[in-house]
Amino acid sequence: MLWVKTFHILAMTSWMAGIFYLPRIFVHYAEGRAAGQDVTRLIIMAGKLYGFMSLMAVLTLGLGFWLWFGWGFGGGWLHAKLVMVVLLIGYHHWCLRYLKQMRAGTLDRSGRYFRLFNELPLLIFVPILILVVVKPF
């Protein structure tokens, strides 16, 4: 079971790297487009990154369920963590919506907006980390 936990943490780390980096691409896209620069490469990068982070999300969730069923359903901390994971999945899909707008050329949010948008996953990730390590309840 420790191998499963190891690969769960590895996949989660990779997923979070994508979750933190994709909005930075949105920032560069918004600011580059406003400055009249060619942003085609950013669209390609965002698409490839989204595909990678989606694969890592699936692996994270699959291995997480394996751990959940292997070690049981106990502890209020786990239920709270799962709520936060659902929020993270929602954020992941929110990024897909922005990626589709980027591809269609209709992404009209500012770089400042995406800088703030980029902070949301940290507000979700920190409680997950605390819940997993401290297990407060």
Score class of each variant (00 low, 15 high):
2 L>P: 07
6 T>D: 09
8 H>A: 08
12 M>I: 13
13 T>V: 12
15 W>H: 08
16 M>P: 01
17 A>P: 05
17 A>V: 15
19 I>P: 00
19 I>Q: 05
20 F>Q: 06
22 L>M: 15
22 L>P: 03
22 L>N: 03
23 P>T: 10
23 P>Q: 08
24 R>G: 03
25 I>G: 02
25 I>M: 08
25 I>P: 02
26 F>N: 00
29 Y>V: 05
29 Y>M: 02
30 A>S: 14
31 E>I: 02
32 G>V: 06
33 R>W: 05
33 R>T: 09
34 A>V: 04
35 A>Q: 11
36 G>Y: 01
36 G>I: 07
37 Q>T: 05
38 D>V: 02
38 D>F: 00
44 I>M: 13
44 I>R: 15
44 I>Y: 12
44 I>E: 15
44 I>V: 15
45 M>C: 08
46 A>K: 00
47 G>V: 10
47 G>T: 11
47 G>Y: 03
48 K>I: 13
49 L>P: 02
49 L>E: 08
51 G>C: 07
51 G>N: 10
52 F>T: 11
53 M>D: 00
53 M>N: 01
54 S>E: 11
54 S>P: 04
56 M>W: 06
56 M>Y: 04
58 V>Q: 04
59 L>Y: 04
60 T>N: 07
62 G>H: 06
62 G>K: 03
64 G>E: 07
65 F>Q: 10
66 W>Y: 13
67 L>S: 06
68 W>D: 13
69 F>G: 09
69 F>H: 10
70 G>Y: 04
71 W>M: 14
73 F>C: 09
73 F>G: 12
73 F>V: 14
73 F>L: 13
74 G>S: 15
77 W>S: 07
79 H>R: 13
80 A>M: 15
81 K>L: 11
81 K>E: 12
82 L>F: 14
83 V>L: 12
86 V>F: 11
86 V>A: 14
87 L>T: 02
88 L>H: 01
88 L>A: 10
88 L>D: 00
89 I>D: 05
89 I>Y: 07
90 G>D: 08
91 Y>F: 13
92 H>P: 02
93 H>A: 14
94 W>V: 09
95 C>W: 01
95 C>T: 07
95 C>P: 04
97 R>A: 14
97 R>Q: 12
98 Y>V: 01
98 Y>D: 09
99 L>G: 05
100 K>G: 08
101 Q>N: 09
102 M>E: 05
103 R>I: 11
103 R>Q: 15
103 R>G: 12
105 G>P: 00
105 G>W: 03
106 T>F: 06
106 T>E: 12
107 L>Q: 00
107 L>S: 03
109 R>Q: 13
109 R>G: 06
110 S>T: 13
112 R>C: 00
113 Y>V: 10
114 F>P: 01
114 F>R: 03
116 L>Q: 13
116 L>A: 14
117 F>H: 04
118 N>D: 14
118 N>Y: 01
122 L>Y: 08
123 L>Q: 09
124 I>R: 05
125 F>M: 11
126 V>H: 01
128 I>N: 05
129 L>K: 03
130 I>Q: 05
132 V>W: 01
132 V>I: 14
135 K>M: 10
